[in-house]
Amino acid sequence: MEAEAPQRLTRIPKEQKGPSRRSRLGSTLNYIVLSILAAAWLTPLAWAVDTALKPESETTITPITWDSSNFNLGAFKEVIDAGNILRWYGNSALVSIVVTAGVVILASLAAYALSRIPFRGRTVLFWVILAGLMIPPQVLILPLFAEMQIFGFVNTYQGIILPQLASALAVFILKVFFDGIPHELEESALVDGASRLRIYWQIWMPLARPALAAVAIFTFVTSWNYFIWPLVVVTSTNMMTIPLGLQAVQSAFGVHYAQIMASAVLGGLPLLVAFIFFQRQIVEGIANTGLKG
């Protein structure tokens, strides 16, 4: 940052000279093009909100208009009063929180051992986990469902949650992170007679906080948005998560456009709000893990 400052300063006088007008024109043009693109990108969301606020009778008129004689929250009220969406929020929150906590704990324990404890068999285990990275979860839906039938977990929270805990990717990301921390820390703690569990908990977990946060955020978003597995394992409306429930929403309301859009807006809201708060972490998390992979 500090190194950049003088550079910016030296650029100012240059811009006042000859080519400055061209570059200023370029950057204005750049702003205009980008603003149009950004507006276009947000338009579908704006249209959804607009429709949700209209009275049902005005949602399908042509020629279309963004205006309405009576903007109101009636559609939202009806969707919430119908009850299902709150139940789905609850299911989604429960599932995503348990999955996130579970993945962070299980994966960090495994990643710590793979990175720091030279036990026999660790190379084999690492390759077994690495191989798991190449298995898309979608291909396993049939045998997993058969398994859930055997365990009696069809249409239960365990059934939705358990398969999501086997995240090879989380182990891999955390192991790479642990590998990058100097060995001396570990050794001096061992010499002091601390147990491995204490070292893991008191030294590594605090050190790994940024990596753990990235893994946690991703696991949460992925789990909240996970569609295909809940579609397979959930068989009743009251066990549905948000993505699954919304997909069936038109059968609940009939084709009432304002209410369907109100459900969509409500379904998208929690993560949009979370994204506004965690924008930096989410964006950096993608950039770091993605670029390393």
Binding site: L37, A38, A39, W41, L42, P44, L45, W47, A48, T51, T59, T60, I61, T62, I64, V221, W224, N225, F227, I242, P243, L244, G245, L246, Q247, V249, Q250, V255, Y257, I260, M261, S263, A264, V265, G267, G268, L271, L272, A274, F275, I276, Q279, I282, V283
Partner: peptide
């Protein structure tokens, strides 16, 4: 924010918006 925001939405939200309010013939 504008370009990344849609990515955090659940697929059904995206699908509902496009299916009903973007692609419906006429309106």
């Amino acid at each position: 924010f504008s370009f990344f925001a849609p990515f955090v939405l659940p697929v059904s939200v995206v699908a509902l918006i496009w299916w009903y309010m973007m692609y419906s013939p006429g309106f």
